[in-house]
Structure formats: structure tokens, C-alpha cells
Nucleic acid binder design. Structure first.
Lengths: 332, 332
DNA sequence: GTGAAAGCGCTAACAC
DNA sequence: GTGTTAGCGCTTTCAC
């Protein structure tokens, strides 16, 4: 049978107030009653009903984590970091995957806003998140993660430094002498993609290499998508000598296609991937990647959410730097 | 300002009951009042407080998904399948990762049991889950996923057929003529490992190959762990001619180590991996894997949870069959 | 130190 | 067709 605090109180011959106080340590209760109450609690294995507690306290100690592309290895890492941190801090995490579906995203936020959650960590879809302003204006704690959206005001953000990522990756390729550098990306109109391309452009500019937007190709964020993107890009631009690929699955697909085309890496075409997938080192040749720390981003996002919950004025933008892991595919 | 149903009722000159009925469609309300109410609701962008609703209805429309090793690609796939299905069915998912920590698992289940969740999908740790019986006896809906634990009664289960996985993988290697087949695994005392090894033994028996338990090696479920396990196994058993590796990251580590040892795959040592990782096809040689469908397992687990919620007597064990993806590493 | 009781925001039985 | 109201299980103010 399901026990309530009332039942416990009755059996211990005290009031519910007293029971509540010993459970939460909110007031000093005589040792005698305390012992008696704990005994009854243990006897029935009683656990207070969180729903009732939540209603009363207007807080659920759970946060929403809304991502838009799962399972992508980067996103998975973020989820891991956030979940771990949440747990450490006594929170639970509601995981929602919107699959880049913006109207589902809105719906979800509305739902979670209705008290199910103390705050939300959101990796927005590509459709823009300015509708969030009605929530943030209301001081509902939201933090933007991974993807930035400048149109949302009054939110803290945790992202990787995608501009620097694009800049460093491109510079590295440029230093190896490659000038015709293609880019393959998956999701348009998100800061991760846009900023990396900005960095790419600026690196080209610095090296006086003209920018050509037909060197940029979009594809699906899958192995097959990467293969197809390479094919269509190389078909159009035959003298591309290096590739910067913004997604790990696509990198794998790209390598597959390049080998199929009997092109040699890096001799005929050099390769720079994004995100450090496990097999990067045993592929022939080992693939050079530029990485952003997904787990740290997730963990930090949760910390930032907590800051925002405790201080509505907290609106920092934390940007984590990239790391270049050089192996052979870039010509190193 | 935060609106309540009472506020809406007052502004629309009706009772809260009427508001509730138009929101939930639980009774027929005159079109006139209905319109008025909807208008007020929209005006304030009102959303009913779920906590209050949950308390009243004794149901939260959220389920707990407790996994013990995240982010492992198999687990990630399961999470994806379950989350997707939950969403389709109007449920939310609370994701918890116990990191193989059994006492944290217990704690979590206690917590979630206290009304935060309508049921739980659990991939138990290796420490045994018989303590669950106190919950399942109470008809709290729990489904075991991925890892089976026969000591838990009155639960439905969704797993891969791990016995068949071990049997088929081993048989395939045997048919290629390999007799000295090593096994590398990560987690001891879980059905996934134990049953695959059972299948391995039975396959050996069928081919009249003696079983030798020093052919079995444990390691960490990481790239490095796989490398080390291969090293120590090959050090001990020099005439091993094939390897069955139960975890994808370990497979990658193993390949790395084998190449480092200047051994050729499959000539010197054949390889059978588990789980179809993206790069399997572009590694040299492409690696043969036996796979169980993580996404289907996750999706099915959620369906089964729903069945269990609706029918406390539902206790089926659904076992999904493996698929062999033959490439080159096995000698094919 | 302890208890009575109000009230969090909703649903649903019941009355009209 | 609509309103009144009890009550879900807890926390917390206020008396004592």
C-alpha cells in the first residue's frame, strides 16, 4: 500500500508538520519523536510524494535538455556532460529530441514551462528561436547551448568557438599549401555552421586566397550524406585539393567515397574532420580533426543554468576554444 | 504574470470546472462559453500547471529511462529509440545514467517511484537487480531492457538474443576454419556478456572444438581498453587465430593494437566485432560485425512499458535476433 | 518543540 | 450545460 505523510504521522502519533520537519531537517524536533518517526518511515519504506512537494514548492528539481539532432556524437557527448553534472547537483534531466523540428520545439518548451521543469537547456533548431523572448522576458530560465542565436535576448549561452574552429582548421590546411579548400556541412543557418564558414573565409583572406562559394557543399549528417556531398562537390569543382568536413559521420562517408574514386588522401585530396571519433586513428590515413569539447559544453551549460536560476540577471556567453588533433589526413 | 485556471475562469465569467472541461474536452460546453474561454486562454497564453494536474491524476506522463553506460553507442541507440517512441505517445523521458553504480541505481528508482514517473525502463547494472522485486511486487511498472536479470520477477523484458549472437558469430568464424577463437568483453556478470559466451561455447561444442577459458579476456569498454585486452590476451595465448570482440570501441582499439603488432587481419588474426559502428566499412580491412538493433530495442521497450502500465499482468520477454554483417575482417 | 490548518493548481463527483 | 467543492500529498505560517 502507498503510504502518505499523513499515514506516517498517524502511526507515529505526531502531526504531518513534525514528520515533514524531520524529513527535511527544517526544524529541530525532539530526539524521541525523531527516532519514532524515522522508525515508521523505514518500516514502510516511505518516500515523500515528489509531485505534491513540487506543487507546493513550485519547483521540481528537474531541468529540460532539448536537443535537435540525436544521436549525433557531439550531441551525445553534451548530453552526457549535462546529465552527469545535473545528477551531481541533485537534479534530474528530461531529455527531448526535436529532430530539427521547430514547431515541436516550441510545443515542448511551452509544456515544460508549465511547471514541469525549473529551467531549460536548449540546442535550438535552425529555424531561429526568437520566439523564446516571451519566455526569457518572463525570466523563465533558459540557456542556449552549442548553437547560438543572437535574436534571443536575456539568455546565457554556452557554445564552442566555431569561428576559431573554422579559422584554425582552414589555416592549418592553408599552411600545408592547399588553396582550393572545400567545405562540407550538414545544417544550414545555425551558428555552428555559419561561424565556422566565417572563420574559413577570414583565414582565406589572411592568406590572400579568394573565396568561392561553390566550394561549399551541403549534405545529410550521415555516412551516406557525406559520400554524396563529396561526389557532387568534386564533380563540380575538380581541382579541390583539401576538404574540411563539419560532421564526423560525413567525414567517414567522405573517406569512403574518396577511396572509391581511387583518390589518395592526402596526396590527391587532404582531409580535416570535425569531432574526434574513436576510429580516427586507425583509418588509413589517420584523420586529422578539429574538436570542440562536447562533454565540457554540456556540463558547463548545466552550471550556467543553475546560475541563471539563482540569478535572473546572469547572461554570460561562455565560448570554449577548439583543439586541433593533427594526424595524417591533412598532409602532416 | 503566471495565470492559473482560476484566473482564466474569473475573466471568462465561468467556473474552473468549465475551463477544465473545455481544455480537456471532458464534457460538452456551449459553443459560446467555449469560445470565450479559448479567447482568454490565448490572450494570456495560458498553459495548465502540469504539477497540479499530475498530483490530482496520480500520473505524470513521464517515464524514467535508466541506463548504466552512457554514452556507449549501443545505449545511445536505445535511448534514441525509446525517446522517439515516448514522444510519439505523448510521454516525456527522464534520462538517468548510473555509470554501473548499483547503489545510485537503487536510489534513483526509489526517487522516481515516488510519483515522478509512471514507470521505468531499466538497463540494470551488473550487480544484480533482485531488489527490484519489492517494486514489481507492488505493481510499479518496470521493464528490463538490454540486460536480462532472471532474479527479477513480474517484469517484462526487451533484450537482444545474446545467446544466438554468440552462437552465430562463433559459428561464422568456425566455418572459416578458425578454431582458436578469443573473446574480449567489457562487463562481467551481465546477461549480454554471459549469454554471448554461452552461445560461443555451444558453437564450439557443435564443432567439437574444446573450450578454453583462458581464451576469454576482459577489458575496459574503451579504445584503450580494447588495445590492452588484445595485448594481454595475445601475450598469453600466442596461437589465437580469431577474435570476437563484444564492444565497438574495444574493436577499434583491438585493430589499432593488432596493426601495431604488425599482425595482418584476417590472415594472422581474424576479427568479428559487435555493433555496427559507422567506420566499420572504411577501415582496412572492413570489419565484420554481428549486430543487435539498439533503436528497435529502445522503441520496443517503451511500447512494452506502456503495455505494462495498462496491464500489470503483462510480463513478456521479447528477444530480438542478431544480424551478421559480413565484410573482410573475418576472412570472408 | 509541536500541531492545526491553509493552500499550491488542478480534476471530477455531485448537485442543480 | 454549468457550478460547487472536496481532495490529490505536501510545506509552512502561525498559535500554542
Amino acid at each position: 500500500m502507498k503510504m502518505t505523510m499523513k499515514d506516517i504521522a498517524k502511526e507515529a502519533n505526531v502531526s504531518t508538520a513534525t514528520v515533514s520537519h524531520v524529513i527535511n531537517g527544517t526544524k529541530h524536533i525532539s530526539e524521541e519523536k525523531q527516532n519514532k518517526i524515522m522508525e515508521v518511515i523505514r518500516k514502510y519504506n516511505y518516500i515523500p510524494n515528489s509531485t505534491a512537494k513540487n506543487l507546493r514548492k513550485q519547483s521540481t528539481k528537474t531541468a529540460g535538455l532539448i536537443v535537435s539532432s540525436f544521436p549525433d556524437s557531439f550531441v551525445t557527448g553534451m548530453v552526457y556532460g549535462a546529465e552527469k553534472r545535473a545528477r551531481e547537483m541533485g537534479y534530474n534531466l528530461l531529455l527531448i529530441n526535436t529532430n530539427e523540428n521547430s514547431s515541436y520545439e516550441k510545443e515542448t518548451i511551452n509544456l515544460l514551462h508549465a511547471q514541469m521543469v525549473d529551467g531549460i537547456i536548449l540546442a535550438p533548431t535552425s529555424s531561429g528561436a526568437s520566439y523564446l523572448n516571451s519566455f526569457t522576458d518572463d525570466n523563465f530560465p533558459i540557456v542556449l547551448v552549442n548553437r547560438d542565436d543572437p535574436s534571443v535576448k536575456n539568455v546565457p549561452k554556452v557554445t564552442g568557438d566555431n569561428y576559431q574552429t573554422g579559422f584554425d582548421a582552414t589555416t592549418h590546411l592553408l599552411k600545408h599549401g592547399y588553396k582550393k579548400i572545400g567545405i562540407i556541412y550538414a545544417v544550414a543557418n545555425v551558428s555552428t555552421t555559419v561561424n565556422r564558414i566565417e572563420g574559413y573565409k577570414d583565414a582565406l583572406k589572411k592568406y590572400h586566397v579568394p573565396f568561392d562559394d561553390s566550394f561549399i557543399e551541403q549534405g545529410h549528417a550521415t555516412v551516406e550524406g557525406g559520400a554524396e556531398a563529396v561526389k557532387s562537390l568534386l564533380n563540380r569543382e575538380k581541382d579541390i585539393s583539401a576538404l574540411f568536413i563539419l560532421n564526423d559521420l560525413m567525414t567517414i562517408g567522405a573517406i569512403s567515397k574518396i577511396k572509391e574514386l581511387s583518390l589518395r588522401i592526402p596526396k590527391d585530396i587532404a582531409l580535416m574532420g570535425f569531432g574526434d571519433f574513436a576510429s580516427a586513428n586507425i583509418i588509413d590515413p589517420p584523420v586529422t580533426n578539429i574538436v570542440l569539447p562536447p562533454e565540457t559544453i554540456g556540463k558547463t551549460a548545466f552550471d550556467v543554468l543553475l546560475s541563471k536560476i539563482n540569478n535572473p540577471e546572469y547572461n554570460k556567453h561562455i565560448e570554449l576554444p577548439p583543439t586541433l588533433i593533427t594526424r595524417k589526413s591533412c598532409g602532416c
